Simulated scan of single mutants.
Amino acid sequence: MPERGLPPDSDFDLRTRAALDRAFEPGAPPASLLRKAPPLWTRRGFQRGALALLLTGGGAGVAMAQRPPSLVRHAIDHEYLERSLRGSLMEPAQMLERIGLRGARELPGFVQLLRPCDLDGHLAYHLTTFFEKSGMVTLFAFDQPVDLRDGEGWWNNIFWQVLRSQDQQPLVLLARQKKTLAMAEAALHGGTAVAPG
């Protein structure tokens, strides 16, 4: 029965409707007419999420690759805890021997802290000294041989460097400025003490 306001079906309409009824089975439309969901990897949200995950993983990998050795990380933590300590709890000659400057009469820079300490189960000799126009540097020398390769980097807002003394023993240097490390390295390898102040 035609709805109100619409003209009655013409013969053409009736024939077309009859032809369509024969072409398709009554019920669900054929699958070829339905929209197919795109594969998961072609969806924009999935692509953005995968890219974010990839970048985060890559960034974490780079950060972990730049991570200093465990002993250096412990030295950075130790230096942070003892940053405000001052004093001399050992003879300077002992420290000069540990850092390979047996012939020198005084320690490089203006000494702030000189003491033995425990660093991750290793006996370490802690020297914090000040270099004019560059800043503070902390040096750790070890009583027993430790497995540290030479290297440098930046971690936890501190520049660090592992280098060899004149006796080929590893030394750990920590400073807030890179030029302070360079000045300390020059003082250690030059064998001459940089005058304080």
Results as ranks from 00 to 15, higher is better:
M1W: 14
E3K: 12
R4G: 15
P7E: 13
P8K: 02
D9A: 15
D11T: 10
R15D: 11
D21P: 11
R22K: 11
F24C: 06
E25Q: 15
A28L: 11
A31E: 09
S32Y: 08
R35T: 12
K36I: 14
P39F: 12
L40V: 11
T42P: 03
Q47D: 05
R48A: 05
G49S: 06
A50C: 06
A50D: 05
A52P: 01
L53D: 04
G58M: 05
G61P: 09
G61A: 07
A63R: 06
Q66R: 14
P69I: 01
I76Q: 07
D77N: 07
Y80L: 13
L81D: 08
L81A: 06
R86Y: 10
S88D: 09
P92C: 02
L96I: 05
I99E: 00
G100H: 04
L101P: 00
A104G: 04
E106S: 15
Q112P: 03
R115T: 12
G121V: 00
Y125L: 12
L127K: 04
T128Q: 06
F131P: 00
F131E: 03
T138P: 00
T138S: 05
A141I: 00
A141Q: 02
F142R: 02
V146E: 01
D147E: 10
D147L: 09
G151V: 01
W154E: 10
W154V: 11
N156T: 07
Q161N: 10
Q161C: 11
L163S: 00
Q168F: 13
Q169F: 07
L171D: 01
L173C: 00
L174P: 00
L174W: 03
K179F: 14
A182M: 13
A182S: 14
A186S: 10
A186K: 10
L188P: 03
G191W: 03
G191Q: 02
P196V: 00
